[in-house]
Amino acid sequence: MQYDAIIIGGGACGLMCAVQAGLLGKKTLILERNDKPGAKILISGGGRCNYTNLGTSLDNFVSENPSFLHTAFNLWSVSDTLDFFESQGIYGQEKTLGQLFPTTNKAKDVVGVFTKLMFETGQDIWLNSIVTSVEQSGAMYRVKVETPSGEKVLSSPKVVFASGGLPVQKLGASDFALRAAKQFGLKIVQTAPALVPLTITGKDADWYASLSGNSVFCRVYNKKISFEENILFTHWGLSGPAILQISSYWRPGEEFTMDLLPRFSLEQIIKSERDNGGRRLVSQVLHDYFTKRMVEALGQFLPINTKVASLSKADSKSIIDTIHRFSVKPAGDKGYDKAEVMRGGISTDELNARTLESKKIAGLYFGGEAVDVTGWLGGYNFQWAWASGYVIAQAI
C-alpha cells in the first residue's frame, strides 16, 4: 500500500491529522504502540475529556516563541473545533474557566469520532506497533516498525511525528520524536515535566503532610504569572489545579507565593473585628474561612489563641503576611509519570508555522506535545493537538 504519509502516534494530533487528510482524499497510516488509539484522550479529565477551552489565546501557552501559534490557530480555531465535533454529534458543556467537556461526559465518545471517520475515509491504523527508526532514502523515508507479526519496513514520502512527549510511561510515552529530531539535526528546547505536582522536603515537609487532603482556593503567583484556583495539600507537598498551572512556570530552586485568602482582605477583617470589640480569638476569625485542621496548622507559627483586640502591630502584620503572602520553595516535582504534559521539545524555529514541516528536512512534520508548545491546564493542549494535526494534514 502506498501512503501519502505515515503518522507515528495515534493520539489527539495523529488522529486529527489522519482524519483531516482522509477528508481531503489522502491516504495515511497511523502506527500506534498501544492496543487502542487515543490512550491519553481516554484518561483526560477523569475520563470525561476536556477537549478544548473557549478562552484559548496565545497567552495560555508556554514556549520560547508563543507567537508561533498564531498561524495554526488562525487556520484551526476553537470555533473550528466546536464545529468539527458538533458535525459528529459531540456537543460541549462549559465547566469552569472556559473548559469544554462533551455533554455525554465520556472521553471514549471523542475517540469514537476519529475511529469512525478513519474508517469512513479509508485511513489505516496499526496497533501494538512500535517504530524503531526513520531513515531518509532519496525522496522517500524508510520506517522500521515492530509489529505483533514481526518487523516490517515501510516506505513513504512524508512522515508525521505525533508521538507525544515523555508523560506518561504507562500510556506508552516515549522520547522517540525528540530522538528523531536530534538525528535529523533539529534543535531541542530543554524538556521537563509540566502541569505536575510539586514536592516539599526538609524541615517544612511535616507541616505540609499534616494538611494532607485539605483543599484551599488560592492565588498562586510568581514574577511571571498568577493563577486563582484550588491547591491541594498532600503528604509529599502540593497539588491541585493552581499548583499544576504554576509548575509550568517554575524552575528548580525558585520560590512562588500563595495568597490563601485571595478574595478577602485580612487587614480589613482584623480591623472590622477590632471595631466590634475584638473579643474573638484569631482562631475563631480564621475558622470563618478555613478548615479546623488548616487553622491548627497555621497555629504553629501564628498567635491564633490571642484575642484580636490584644494583637500587636507586629502580630497583625505576621498574620496578614502569612495568609496573603505564603512563600513556597519546592524541592522538586513528581516527575513525568505524574505530569500532564511535557514542557519544551522541538524548537519552533525549526518548523514552518503554516505546515509544521521541518525547515531543514523536507517531508518531516512534527505536531502536538513533541513541539515546544505547552498549554495550561484546561483543554488548551488538546486545542493545540487538533490545530497541529489539521495544519499538517493540509500539507502532506
Rank of each mutant, 00 (worst) to 15 (best):
E267C: 05
D315Y: 03
V134A: 02
G277L: 13
D315C: 03
I320G: 04
Y91P: 02
D288H: 13
R280K: 15
S63Y: 01
S87L: 06
F366T: 02
R280F: 04
N74C: 10
M1R: 13
V282C: 12
S174Q: 10
E254K: 09
T191M: 05
K106S: 07
Q169G: 04
G335R: 07
W207Q: 10
F61I: 10
T234G: 04
I323E: 06
E94N: 09
R293T: 14
G278V: 10
D80Q: 12
T355Y: 07
P197G: 04
T71M: 09
F382S: 06
L244V: 08
E267Q: 15
A5G: 12
D372W: 08
G278L: 11
A5D: 10
G25N: 08
A339Y: 09
Y365Q: 08
L166S: 08
G202A: 11
L100Y: 02
I246S: 09
Y249D: 06
P303I: 08
K36Q: 15
K36W: 09
C17H: 06
V328R: 09
S358R: 11
Y380D: 00
G45T: 01
R279M: 13
N65H: 15
I361F: 00
F85E: 03
W236Q: 12
G38R: 11
S156H: 06
I246R: 02
L238H: 06
F227Q: 11
I246A: 09
K158I: 03
I319P: 12
D206V: 12
V62K: 14
D372Y: 05
L377E: 05
Y141N: 04
L356Q: 02
Y390T: 03
A314P: 00
L58M: 11
S44K: 03
S79K: 14
G122L: 00
I225R: 15
N50V: 05
D315H: 11
G38F: 10
W250N: 09
N276T: 05
H324E: 05
S63G: 04
K187Q: 14
G240R: 13
A385Y: 00
A72H: 01
F264Y: 14
V134M: 01
I269M: 14
D259I: 11
R251D: 13
S327T: 14
P241K: 07
